[in-house]
Amino acid sequence: MSGFLVSTKINGDAFQFACPSEETLLDSLRNRVGLTGVKEGCGTGDCGACSITLDGSLVCSCLVLAAEADGREIGTVEGLSDGMKLHPLQEKFIEHAALQCGICTPGFLISAKALLEKNPKPSEKEIRYALAGNLCRCTGYDKIVRAVQAAAKEMRKK
């Protein structure tokens, strides 16, 4: 089994870990870095529960090899809040009851954040298409879309 030493920056902090060459970034983040907020729903890039940002781009971490993260910056749900202060998306997800079981929530938050960074005033349709790579089985997406709309409005105020 050949291995890699991967040097990354995760949620702003430098981090090194060793992993086998065939290991996905999802598995490394969960099992070697301890960031279990990154969820596995399918392992094939269909559900979006493992969404993270890699150098600012939205990716499914189950479709990225851990070795590919060497020298790059990773953003996960664990890095969304600023100390005690929640990100507006996190706040609005709670206020709008946009989660039931919550397993898909980390992925939705990361995807929604990526959307709002590019498009601060998305239409309902734009939100729905931007989040179409994230599966939620509990909510019917209604309250998720409303939470993202509310967060976008809140963020535009600042």
Binding site: T36, V38, V77, E78, A97, L99, G102, P106
Partner: peptide, 20 residues
């Protein structure tokens, strides 16, 4: 319509599910 008690854990990735 109060906030749920497990809300913060679930939006910060701290909530522990079966595989966590």
């Amino acid at each position: 319509r109060v906030n749920r008690p497990d809300g913060i854990d679930k939006v910060t990735g701290r909530a522990r599910y079966g595989a966590d």
